[in-house]
């Protein structure tokens, strides 16, 4: 595909200290901060505005939430370990960690859908039940879509995209690092979503 790469595809720019992809992902994450920030802003405004149920015990099951938090934190560690393994030139271990990350995130999604969404819908609790459930479904759903996107990207690097490792190790490792940055951000969002919806 490429005989010659654009400047700073691989090497860090002396001023910013990042290669193109990494800078791009960070900028994207800055915009994601504003996306979720707007939704958190909406949450606060709706909550302070009135007609917003906050009796936490009866709303959501915090045990499932805590379990999912744990799964996502673990997936974040395995993700960074995957990057470290590729960096240390151990692709076998790197792939293994990446697979574990995929499995953990699928487990997260499975629990979220099967034991939370389906369960609630079964109880006839849907987004239109109250603004609390509306914003709950909206924010966790959007977060779930982010998880799904991350899984697709990881599966790509484990299958179709894995050939890049043989062609250009550094570029491949960089891409895993970018995926990791995104993944940790998704984890970070959940770290805030969990107390906001399950505990407060």
């Amino acid at each position: 595909m490429s005989s010659e790469l654009l400047p700073h595809t691989l090497d860090a720019h002396p001023v910013t200290g990042m290669y193109n992809g990494k800078f791009g992902v960070w900028l994207f994450l800055a915009s994601e901060v504003m996306l979720f920030g707007a939704l958190f802003s909406a949450y606060i405004l709706l909550r302070t505005h009135g007609d917003f149920p906050t009796h936490k015990e009866t709303l959501l099951n915090y045990k499932i939430g805590a379990l999912n938090t744990f799964l996502l934190i673990t997936s974040s560690v395995t993700m960074v370990m995957a990057w470290a393994s590729f960096k240390l030139n151990d692709p076998g271990k790197g792939k293994l960690y990446l697979w574990i990350t995929v499995i953990l995130s699928c487990a997260f999604l499975f629990i979220k859908i099967k034991f939370e969404y389906m369960h609630k819908i079964h109880e006839d609790i849907i987004p239109s039940t109250s603004t609390f459930y509306g914003i709950y479904y909206c924010m966790t759903g959007l977060h779930g879509l982010h998880i799904l996107g991350g899984v697709v990207v990881m599966l790509y690097f484990l299958t179709v995209g894995s050939g890049l490792w043989n062609k250009n190790q550094q570029q491949f490792t960089n891409r895993i690092e970018c995926t990791g940055l995104y993944w940790h951000f998704v984890d970070l969002v959940w770290i805030f979503l969990f107390p906001v919806f399950y505990l407060l």
């Binding site: 900028l27 800055a30 915009s31 504003m34 707007a38 709706l46 509306g134």
Partner: peptide, 25 residues
């Protein structure tokens, strides 16, 4: 564009929920 557009995207998603899923944001 980077920092101002996402809030409208969020608002758009909320309005979409209002219209499609009958929420009342």
């Amino acid at each position: 564009l980077l920092l101002a557009f996402p809030p409208l995207e969020a608002a758009g998603v909320l309005q979409l929920m209002d219209r499609v899923f009958d929420t009342s944001f």
